[in-house]
Design a protein around this nucleic acid. Structure first.
Length: 119
DNA sequence: AAGGTGACTGGCG
DNA sequence: TCGCCAGCCACCT
């Protein structure tokens, strides 16, 4: 048996993608929440960087990740911010008059109950 | 290999 | 309550 396993844990980005894929339709999570769920509670910016590196073909629901205030902090270039809002609204996510998502109503509580696995 | 960047946050005035 | 500032982390030259 090998004495060491340096590559046991998947790369940061892969863990982020795997977690974001588990966010249910019509729900949202903050960058910080996702970071904490993948074991890097201070890497909120890293989550944003990981999502910005996604290809259009990837089946990762990146639009369900917003900032902790419920606002869309994605770069407005290329119409991405508008796209994100459109996709969320199509899933039934409601925005308040101040352009923030109603977190009390749509915030994802985490993977608990998703598969019955407790941390 | 060292420095710069960004789809973040929390703290402070 | 709101805006600004500095800290943090992963990734790319």
């Amino acid at each position: 048996m090998p004495a060491s396993r340096p590559d046991q844990a998947p790369p940061f980005r892969e863990r982020v993608y795997a977690m974001v894929r588990r966010i249910p339709r019509g729900r949202v999570a903050s960058y910080g929440d996702v970071a904490a769920l993948v074991g890097a509670p201070r890497a909120a910016r890293g989550v944003g960087a990981a999502l910005s590196a996604l290809d259009p073909d990837d089946d990762v629901p990146w639009w369900r990740v917003i900032n902790h205030q419920g606002r869309l902090t994605i770069s407005p270039v290329h119409g991405l911010r508008v796209l994100q809002r459109t996709l969320l609204e199509q899933e039934g996510v409601r925005f308040r008059s101040d352009d923030a998502v109603d977190l009390d109503r749509h915030a994802w509580e985490g993977p608990w109950g998703d598969t019955g696995q407790d941390p």
